[in-house]
Nucleic acid binder design. Structure first.
Lengths: 214, 214
DNA sequence: GTCTATACAGTGATAGAC
DNA sequence: GTCTATCACTGTATAGAC
């Protein structure tokens, strides 16, 4: 018999869907409990607070993600004393992107959650700001094309996103006060990443440097 | 005569300070207007809404940041047909990190704002989650040390932050559905960045490969 | 234990007087 | 421009029904 899920799970499901559609801050507990056909007080009974409910929604997905990551990491480390760097990085990256950019039903919904949670830093502030300063990024993209002629422009756009993400994350999380050293590291890291895509993917064999990873 | 600033500016200053200390969501308009010695309705009169006030606080700082970036970019592009990639990236990165990790009075306060705004994705959710899954990142750090023996561990920690930032940002912002291509690009980008720090900075000359960027 | 009804203090926003 | 008064709504807490 497939009875309706328990109240606790109905709340989690409704919360996940509404958070993804509207954002955390914009979704009220009354909306959630109404969609879950539960009483308002049930969420505080089962989870303790709205914040704890948000955490529970995340935990349900992140547990699975990190299990998948570690399983793939074990596979990359198994059998060899000298594991492959690319395989290690794939274990970190692929399960995450499959979750957010994949087509599976649950995954797709969770992608929108994560998108809201991490992009929607206070409602639509981030979207408004990045649109407002998009011209700055366009200027940098043009400059990099000059510095690295022949770079694939779609790939460059992605890589600029990588760099901006690394920079933003570092600005937000890093506790170190040593801005100079961090900046040096990030510049070196980003430059190597950008150069690697030029040397690896140029189809006309002018100066292929595939032996770069000897 | 240095009269007290206009109401509009007093609100901006108070909001910036309180947002930085408490976060957006946790700071009420009543706190702000009280600290600014203004009336509650003044914020809606001058800015229209709480969201618009947040945006105004950001714009005041980001305008200066992006001006500094573009000025430095122009400098990097001037005088040569073939600008230096590192100088371009420094123009993007250094002014931002100077603002958030520097010691200037205003900058330090703004650093805390940005930190709250971008890290404090819904109160302390992000802190709780990253603590909960910190062991996963530790496992990956260990794996990378095996794959890249001799890598500096402080630098590796920073670079892992770069990768996580790039990944998070991409999960949140990227609209492309092509998870496989994005993952490939990120893996290649990150691997090149990591390898560059090993080959460039090893002090014992065993296998210096500085000619890697020939 | 699970769930409900209800009450409460505090929020952002707004209309209208001064 | 500024202020007071008020509104609908929020998350949370509690007392009690099943």
């Amino acid at each position: 018999m497939t009875a309706t899920p328990a109240t606790c799970d109905r709340i989690l499901d409704a919360a996940e869907r509404l958070f993804a559609e509207e954002g955390f801050h914009a979704t009220s507990l009354r909306q959630i409990t109404q969609a879950a056909e539960a009483n308002l007080a049930a969420v505080n009974y089962h989870f303790g607070s709205k914040q704890a409910l948000i955490l529970a929604v995340f935990r349900r997905r992140l547990d699975a993600l990190n299990e998948a990551r570690l399983a793939r990491l074990d596979q990359a480390l198994a059998g060899s004393d000298q594991p492959d760097l690319e395989e290690i990085l794939e274990a970190l990256v692929v399960p995450a992107l499959a979750l957010t950019h994949g087509n599976a039903d649950d995954g797709h919904r969770f992608m929108r959650i994560l998108m809201r949670a991490f992009a929607d830093r206070d409602d639509h502030l981030h979207r408004a700001l990045s649109a407002e300063y998009a011209h700055v990024m366009r200027r940098f993209a043009s400059a990099i094309v000059i510095a690295l002629p022949g770079i694939d422009e779609l790939k460059l756009r992605r890589q600029l996103d990588f760099i901006v993400g690394a920079l933003t994350h570092t600005m937000a999380e890093s506790c170190s006060k040593d801005a100079r050293a961090i900046a040096d590291d990030l510049v070196q890291f980003a430059a190597a990443g950008l150069r690697s895509s030029v040397s690896v993917q140029k189809p006309d064999g002018a100066s292929r440097t595939l032996e770069i990873h000897s």
